[in-house]
Design a binder for these strands. Structure first.
Lengths: 163, 163
DNA sequence: GGTGGATTGACAGTGTGCTGTCAAAATGAC
DNA sequence: GTCATTTTGACAGCACACTGTCAATCCACC
């Protein structure tokens, strides 16, 4: 799942069930996934810092740009727990970047949406994000990048049905 | 950097600098990176649970299978902070899975290495990991998986030199 | 019109990684 | 050998996501 994995594979333990060639490549892919995750997260933090947000706040605000949603709905959509989203949503409200509206359909599940300040922050971030993805993606072959996306989608599917 | 990003892109904000086509694909790749990260992490936790470890413990233990290292050396090798590794290393020692040895070359920086129990746990994990990567990688085309690895490596490099 | 199960928010606790600070130890320049 | 710099472990605090539990609310079924 990380460097441990490769150490384990190449290392001092008995190889009871050997890895296939594809398994070896996937192990490398997994390690790169962890590195990329860290790198993208760091890039997000660099982008959000001047705007006064964090990557997590950006994510939550972004989920609700087009229409208000209750916290639990955001969590469902982002595959996070209610509790994680709730914490951030409350923070965003306390910072004036979002607000709760009464929900006619549910007395407890208030609707969550950005304020004008929230929209403005996300709008500024969109520009930074576009510049970033344009800049980075220019350094790889477009067709190969498409293949990468396809493979990653298949891996996500495979993981989900693997349980 | 995540779903927010795509919402931002497709959403209600002004498009001052538009994304290139490659930028669009990369944005999707970023989202998949986050999903894959979560999925692989979960898979690691499923594998480690029966052995009495966590994914992070596995990672730290794995870094030191072949030769002892001081905590700060492990951190350097894994691109983590000393403090994170220190915390886990202390836990592993308290669980009897690793131990500290006096370091002739440095009075404070004790050498860290697995105990027999630690080696045994990692050995069991190696088998689970091989089965996992063989199983998942069998569901994608090998050549495309190689392309994916190559692109991810290039993206890691691009991110590192982007700062 | 109840009633039981699912959803929801609130609260508490855990694991992981981060930053920052401090003093002890090691290192390098002189 | 001496002294400034770097490395290291220890300690404290923060952000993020998770699990688990509880009571309020909603909804589907009878």
């Amino acid at each position: 799942m990380n460097e441990t994995v490769s150490e384990t594979a190449g290392g001092a333990v008995d190889e009871v069930e050997p890895r296939t060639e594809a398994g070896d490549v996937l192990t490398e892919v997994i390690m790169r996934t962890f590195r990329l995750y860290g790198g993208f997260l760091e890039a997000a933090e660099v982008m959000t810092r001047p705007v006064g947000l964090t990557a997590a706040w950006w994510q939550v605000l972004g989920a609700v740009l087009r229409r208000p949603l209750p916290v639990s709905g955001i969590a469902r959509e982002m595959s996070l727990t209610r509790q994680s989203v709730q914490r951030i949503a409350d923070l965003l409200v306390s910072k004036g970047l979002a607000e709760y509206l009464p929900n006619p359909a549910h007395k407890r599940a208030k609707l969550f949406r950005p304020t004008a300040a929230g929209y403005e922050a996300v709008s500024r971030l969109a520009q930074a994000q576009h510049a970033f993805t344009n800049r980075i993606s220019a350094q790889v072959d477009l067709e190969e990048l498409r293949t990468t996306l396809k493979v990653m989608e298949r891996l996500v599917t495979a993981l989900e049905s693997d349980t």
